[in-house]
């Protein structure tokens, strides 16, 4: 099949969601929420008709960060917490690609926390999907930044962390993210729709997907009973979004904020010169 690569999102192909899956079997525990997130991503890509070779999925380390290998797109499974800068470098130098970042709450908000702030500020046109299970699954159940302060089931923090939980959506808004949404692995179709919209929105898009860790936080299976669509439409007004997110109980789903900041573009000179011309300044 001949395809001209123009823009990642613009090259249309008609494929089924399963065509975006690789044949590698996930390492995840049966029942892990991440299976649904994988399904949601493939559905979103199929709906967008984006060619798999024009998609790059970048991740760090964690159970959730294993996701690139399960997709038949290009991928990079990098270092713990460093997926966002890796994706930033890729997207800036290859604006033609559709670049997704996927990973966990520990990867994104703890070890990679500063990159999260900076990538919201920079507003490069990438989409960040965090599978939030409020725990470090891969290292067998320690508290993460989104864990409640009184969660005392980890041997490392037997009395709970006793430090405030981190509210990623609020932080994303304050830091300048251009698109903020929440989805749930219990509703893969809803998640697919939100992820699709995030990819389509220019600039940095952030999607928190509530994705239970059935092994270390089995009580999260009940999330599916609590989650519900947000009662109002997405706002473009940051002040309104701030009020909504500050009073949010963390279980409203849907697109919560859609900004209209122009995405980051690297500087480019009006008049290109050659390598030879660069030497001129050194001549005595």
């Amino acid at each position: 099949m001949e395809r001209v690569v123009t823009s990642g999102a613009a090259t249309e192909v008609t494929l089924k969601p399963k065509d975006y899956k690789s044949d590698i079997k996930p390492v995840w525990c049966p029942g892990c929420g991440d299976f649904s997130v994988l399904a949601a991503i493939t559905r979103a890509l199929a709906a967008l008709k984006v060619a798999p070779e024009n998609v790059a999925v970048i991740s760090g380390i964690g159970c959730s960060s294993r996701i690139p290998a399960y997709l038949d797109t290009y991928g990079f499974h990098g270092a713990h917490g460093r997926a966002l800068p890796l994706a930033t470098g890729l997207k800036i130098s290859r604006p033609d690609l559709c670049v997704l970042v996927a990973g966990g709450d520990g990867d994104g908000f703890s070890i990679g926390g500063n990159h999260f702030l900076q990538v919201c500020r920079r507003n490069v046109d990438i989409t960040y999907i965090v599978m939030d299970n409020q725990v470090y699954g891969m290292t067998k159940g320690q508290a993460s930044p989104t864990t409640e302060p009184d969660w005392d089931r980890s041997k490392l923090t037997p009395h709970g962390t006793r430090i405030n939980a981190f509210y990623p959506l609020v932080v994303a808004l304050a830091s300048g993210a251009n698109f903020i949404a929440r989805a749930s692995s219990s509703d893969p179709n809803g998640a697919a729709k939100v992820i699709g919209e995030a990819i389509g929105h220019p600039g940095f898009s952030f999607v928190q997907v509530l994705s239970p860790c059935v092994t270390f936080r089995p009580e999260q299976r009940d999330w599916k009973k609590i989650v519900r669509p947000a009662p109002i439409e997405a706002t473009t007004d940051p002040a309104a979004a701030a009020r909504r997110l500050m009073t949010d109980d963390n279980f409203y789903l849907g697109v919560l904020y859609k900004g209209n900041r122009a995405p980051f573009e690297p500087d480019s000179a009006g008049q290109p010169s050659t390598e030879q011309e660069l030497e001129e300044e050194f001549k005595v």
Binding site: I58, F76, G78, A79, R82, T88, G89, K91, S93, Q118
Partner: peptide, 15 residues
């Protein structure tokens, strides 16, 4: 931490 990972990303893309 970011700069070196940005390089890896850009290089992965061929630059």
């Amino acid at each position: 931490l970011a700069s070196v990972n940005q390089l890896i990303g850009a290089s992965f893309g061929g630059t």
